[in-house]
Structures are given as C-alpha cells and as structure tokens.
C-alpha cells in the first residue's frame, strides 16, 4: 500500500456505492412491493409477475456492488 489516503478514499467510495444504491433500491421496492402484495390479495396467480416487478429496482444495488467490487479488487491494489 503506497498511498494510504487514496486507499482510504477508495474504500469509502466502495461503501458509498453499496449503501446509497441499497437505499435507492429499497425505496423503489417498498412502493412496488406493497402494490404487488395488494394485487396478490386479489389474485394469487400474480405471484410470479409480482415478484418480477418487485425485484426490478434491485439491479441498482447490484450495479453499486459491481462498482464496489471493482474499486476494492481492481483499483485498490494498484494505488
């Protein structure tokens, strides 16, 4: 580790990438999830499609995770 400050910033960035996208995904899923449960109360056959719609915002947090992984395992070793 040559530059501890840069390393610290990279680690912090990774944390922000995961946590911010996590919150964003949660906000999205909150709305869709409750609506999907509402439809399922009327029609149980909606489960599959309901699940699909509910997890769509989850891609956001996966992107955050990918960014974090790249930061930690690719960018961090090179500073």
């Amino acid at each position: 580790m040559v530059n501890p400050e840069a390393a610290g910033l990279i680690a912090l960035s990774a944390a922000i990438a995961v946590s911010a996208t996590g919150i964003a995904a949660a906000l999205g899923e909150q709305v869709i999830g409750s609506a999907a449960i509402g439809v399922m109360a009327e029609d149980e056959g909606f489960f599959g499609r309901g699940l699909v719609m509910t997890v769509i915002p989850e891609s956001i947090v996966i992107f955050g995770l990918v960014v974090a992984l790249i930061l930690l395992f690719v960018a961090l070793p090179s500073v």
Binding site: S59, I62, F63, L65, V66, L69
Partner: peptide, 12 residues
C-alpha cells in the same frame, strides 16, 4: 447491459 450485469449477483 443491466441484464448482463445483473448476473454479477451470482458472485456477490
């Protein structure tokens, strides 16, 4: 793009 990247959850 997001579909392909979505598979990175297999690792995470």
């Amino acid at each position: 793009l997001s579909n392909v990247l979505s598979y990175s959850r297999l690792l995470s």
